[in-house]
């Protein structure tokens, strides 16, 4: 039996006296889209940062493609084929949008095929095209709206042609139309194929999201986090029906409330 694609083993992170992530373990297979949901402050983003290596776990290990990536520098992890986006967008504000995406195209992973330096620009443009913001390519990133910045973040992540994509609230702050667009492009990215010069082998995805209505149709599996602990891990339908998840996150309809308000 081969080892799982991404293996998070008993990861714990302590900030002062707070256990942000407590003994979280889960596996991710290749070609799987997994949603990571939970109430605010449950430790979803922290868990994501522990996997990417922005934060060091207090204990526990993370394996990616059988390599131990615990505590490795994020640039090394990215070059192994793991890409992430940030919840709070962090573009290079003074650089043009195209240059923002050219930076990941200059990373060792993107250049591993011995591509000539000049194709960098074309590849970056294809990544922008895929996310639907290629018309803004020459504008500085500081003039972009929040929705476009979110898509720029996605373009930056897929420009390294990752095998695993960690998305921190890709729909956060987007309007319904933009949300469906991004959800569609994620679905399409997962199918794989060539988008111009950009190649996608269908990355596995781990998506942290609050918009359940948009998230549920695209995910294969859902992991629910509450107070730093994984309380549910299974198919979307099962998780939504789970008693503890309803208690901790989704909430239930209070029958008496309507009667009282009337």
């Amino acid at each position: 039996m081969t080892a799982p694609f991404l293996n998070v083993q008993n990861v714990t992170k302590v900030f002062g006296g707070l256990k942000a992530v407590n003994d979280a373990s889960f596996q991710l297979e290749r070609h799987e889209i997994v949603g990571l949901i939970g109430p605010n402050g449950a430790g979803k983003s922290t868990l994501l940062r522990l996997i990417t290596g922005i934060l060091q776990p207090t204990s526990g290990k993370v394996f990616f493609k059988e390599h131990d990536i615990t505590g490795q520098s994020i640039s090394k992890t990215v070059n192994k084929g793991l890409a992430c986006t940030f919840q709070i967008v962090k573009p290079f504000r003074q650089l043009p949008v195209l240059a923002n995406v050219m930076v990941p195209c200059l990373s060792p992973r993107s250049r591993r095929k011995g591509e000539w330096v000049k194709t960098v620009e074309l590849r970056a443009r294809d990544a922008l095209e895929f996310c639907g913001i290629s018309d803004l390519a020459r504008e500085p990133a500081s003039v972009l709206s929040h929705g476009d910045l979110k898509r720029l973040e996605l373009a930056r992540a897929i420009a390294t042609e990752p095998d695993l994509l960690l998305l921190d609230e890709p729909f956060g702050g987007l309007n319904p139309a933009e949300t469906t667009l991004v959800a569609k492009s994620l679905k399409r990215l997962h199918k794989g194929g060539r988008f111009g010069r950009l190649h996608s082998e269908g990355p596995a995805m781990l998506i942290v999201e609050h918009k359940l209505a948009d998230l549920m149709p695209i995910v294969d599996r859902v992991i629910v986090l509450a107070f730093g602990e994984i309380i549910a891990n299974g198919l979307p339908e099962e998780v939504v029906a789970d008693e503890r998840v309803i208690e901790a996150y989704i909430g239930k309809e209070v029958k008496g409330l309507e009667a009282r308000s009337q």
Partner: peptide, 22 residues
């Protein structure tokens, strides 16, 4: 292509690292 990377490091070092730049 070093210029663009140096600019990126000045603008946001964590994003530059998350883009796979050493």
């Amino acid at each position: 292509r070093t210029g663009i990377i140096l600019h990126a490091i000045r603008e946001d070092e964590i994003t530059a690292r998350a883009s796979g730049i050493n």
